[in-house]
Design a protein around this nucleic acid. Structure first.
Lengths: 252, 252
DNA sequence: GAGTGGTCTAGACCACTGG
DNA sequence: CAGTGGTCTAGACCACTCA
């Protein structure tokens, strides 16, 4: 429950909705509301003696931060806390493994599989033969989706993969067993991006918050790129780690 | 200017404020509003024949995305576009260098310098002698702040650094020239975080959007950690790149 | 003082979930 | 059906900027 003793200060420097956000945040984290459901908007309007718009604005802030989730017709709930996961990108480890190491169940679902004639690709992949095979997997733990990975491979490799293969196996497994290619080098790019409407849908996140995006180009021994994958990660769940030995000597 | 011909569809699946956001975004990027200032809220209310709250909600979305900035008493403006910068973390390169490579002027400002008795540090740094020296630098280009770096070093190294040193030199330069230590290994952690109130202030960003955060622990040849730095990066500006050779063989 | 964006109110109608 | 959150309206007052 939410403490009623605290009172809003009208005419303060701090806006009413900010004061409400602060109070809710504090009381949620200090365990006063261990349960799932929060008071309804109508109740909060009464307790804080403000308008509904002000209460909503305060709650929206916490929704954007991932602390709360709201469902029309049901109510407002403490977002199910997700484990913090550190994914090492300097080793070849499927995301499944990263999650299992923290004792999590992970379910994957293939949400796209198809050939594409004119994909948008990084410059480094201009030499690939078309069409390319592209597929997307969704990762879910405790009923909560937390990552989408999109993989693209050139035609000569993609033709070795069946729908059933892709549904079950990590990409590096398929590259080695099915396509008989061994990645020996990978280039990574980390960035933050707005989710597309589709991604915000399947990852159940607000369209205004950001995704942590990890792109990877893997190359075989000859330096030819053999796969291009993009990982869309919920930033409240994932961290990425890298260790670099033998730091090159300074230049300038 | 904003095109008046497009019309909102009332009763559509898509909310009015979303339609307005879409139209503004499209017309801004398609060059119809090359200038700086957008129509005022009052003008948009008239053109779209909606309430002010709806127009504001549409614009707020673009402000959160960093497309627009609003200033009370002045108006709403296209946010000054910042260059996209890729910072390689597998080489030792100061941020200054990264920016200069894209032809940017960069100014730095020391915004904090002091000793701290009880800092919060990663476990790996528990062995450090206290107090630790901590300082923060703000990076500004084209008058727009885009990064804050916070550096912490143990007492035995920090005592070699003067305020003037820190104001002018990259950390790795000081480690080698002043403290006579050479980092040979570094561990990185990449994450997304809410800015603190102080960070959202100096980086001029909304408190509800996320920062790209890069943490680094550098070690000398004996494996002792010699510095811990945290880089708070505006996600609309920075990307991080890593290349890994000799991918380890698969495990499971 | 006129004009800007920042906050807040008190309503309204709707779509969705549940009993 | 009553109750939830999602959207929208038409006002109001304020702090700030600039002429």
């Amino acid at each position: 429950m939410v403490d009623m003793s605290a009172v809003l200060v009208r005419g303060s420097e701090r806006a009413l909705y900010e004061q409400i956000t602060d109070m809710l945040r504090h009381q949620l984290t200090s365990g006063l509301a261990k349960g799932d459901q929060l008071p309804t908007e109508a109740e909060l309007v009464e307790r804080f003696a403000t308008s509904r718009a002000t209460v909503r604005r305060a709650m929206q802030q916490l929704v954007d931060e991932g602390v709360l989730t709201r469902r029309r017709g049901k109510g407002t709930f403490l977002a199910r806390p997700m484990p913090k996961v550190v994914h090492p990108i300097d080793r070849v480890m499927p995301f499944m493994e990263t999650f299992k190491q923290v004792g999590e169940d992970v379910h994957t679902k293939l949400i796209h599989f198809g050939w594409e004639e004119s994909p948008v690709l990084p410059e480094a992949l201009n030499g690939w033969d078309r069409p390319v095979l592209t597929f997307q997997r969704l990762y879910v733990s405790r009923g909560v989706p937390h990552a989408v990975t999109s993989v693209i491979v050139p035609r000569r490799i993609g033709r070795m993969f069946s729908h059933a293969d892709v549904e079950k196996n990590p990409i590096y497994h398929m590259l080695q067993k099915k396509a008989k290619v061994t990645p020996v080098r990978a280039e990574f790019l980390v960035s933050c991006r707005q989710p597309t409407p589709q991604l915000s849908e399947v990852l159940e996140m607000s369209r205004s918050s950001l995704l942590l995006v990890l792109e990877r180009i893997s190359r075989d021994a000859e330096g030819h790129p053999v796969e291009y994958s993009t990982h869309f990660l919920r930033p409240d769940v994932y961290q990425l780690s890298v260790a670099i030995d033998d730091l090159p000597s300074r230049r300038s």
